[in-house]
Design a protein around this nucleic acid. Sequence first.
DNA 1: ATGCTTATGTGAAGGATGAAACAAAGTCAT
DNA 2: ATGACTTTGTTTCATCCTTCACATAAGCAT
Lengths: 220, 220
Amino acid sequence: MSPEHLKIPQATAKRLPLYYRFLKNLHSSGKQRVSSAELSEAVKVDSATIRRDFSYFGALGKKGYGYNVNYLLSFFRKTLDQDELTKVALIGVGNLGTAFLNYNFLKNNNTIIELAFDVDESKVGTRICDVPVYHMDELEEQLNQRDISVAILTVPSHVAQTITDYLVKSNVKGILNFTPARLTVPAAIRVHHIDLSIELQSLIYFLKHYPSSDIQAITD
Amino acid sequence: MSPEHLKIPQATAKRLPLYYRFLKNLHSSGKQRVSSAELSEAVKVDSATIRRDFSYFGALGKKGYGYNVNYLLSFFRKTLDQDELTKVALIGVGNLGTAFLNYNFLKNNNTIIELAFDVDESKVGTRICDVPVYHMDELEEQLNQRDISVAILTVPSHVAQTITDYLVKSNVKGILNFTPARLTVPAAIRVHHIDLSIELQSLIYFLKHYPSSDIQAITD
DNA sequence: ATGCTTATGTGAAGGATGAAACAAAGTCAT
DNA sequence: ATGACTTTGTTTCATCCTTCACATAAGCAT
């Protein structure tokens, strides 16, 4: 059985896009080879962890040499499905939603917000950064028609669950949830929470309760 | 030694603001008591994990009864320093930065963006949602004067490291980094990364490579 | 060719986290 | 008061993740 078919640890999977992004940088700057130590310095991940992560995919490097940037890059391109464009929908064109529509970082990575939804009639029918805004009533129809199964949720939290139920009904498989609501979904649906207010609060908690010496022990 | 002085696991610390928020909801709806099972349903954290989390702070509940909402709430208020307002600075008034200035979720939690910085002269001197925008040149002076040690970083990634160096020089201790850059900071400085593009990419990776049955095993 | 240097891939150990399970201790109805 | 019921706090186990440490193998200079 080839290594690619084994299940990758979740922690590793979360680092793959990070590696990929940095490898692209290396490539554009014309670098031919890279060691796990160099990579470690750049992405702030222990070099042993990097080698371990890579090893799940087989022996990608050469002892005494390191990794060939081109080879690694093309390998990750395949692994991360960067050849095909993944289309996602954005639900809720408020401040945060609009920021994402404007933000260019989504365009880099073969991921694109293809359409957005809102209930505000003044937004419906317009285009924001070339992304068309539809009314929520058209959610199921549009998502099915365009075969979109990933949604970014940036709606007010009190409607988050209701809209999530619509999303589930519309065959969405993954939700990037920026609302503070903890969503109830069937087990087959994957939800990633990004709770901005909790991130800020927990950062503050760590600062107040964990002395610098401890942080050294953790991050160094 | 009282339990409050023991070090709390990082995973637990990250859940505390979540518990706190839900307890506030319970309180406003007039509920007097709550069990770990109820809490579990609401915040989607295993009830045993919740009891374990609470137990780091001592015996907060009563067997056969559960937890007193008021007591728990006031305990967490103290623990999370919710009595004092934590002031933070926002660096970079672009799309995302503006969204945060508009977003109300920061006002809830005794955390406030007190001022913002940018280099764009058309923004400097204005107020966005009542938050004054200063020029980057005034960073050190303003932060020291106002005794601010936490910053939200929403600048273009190519200037992220340079600005981070300024922040460190200005005695900032914690940075919430929304740029894709991996920042180099002294060990005593704490950085939390929120990398939106990586979150989206890893969500997509999980959807494509982890069958629903596995997700069931993980999240159910 | 030779030997020194470099850097991988991985076994093993150590930590951290999550969840099952249950004794202990309280509640609550009668 | 009593006994059935509830729910905690904790012990225990399992899993996942990270890091050390090093044998192994390849580069590289002479």
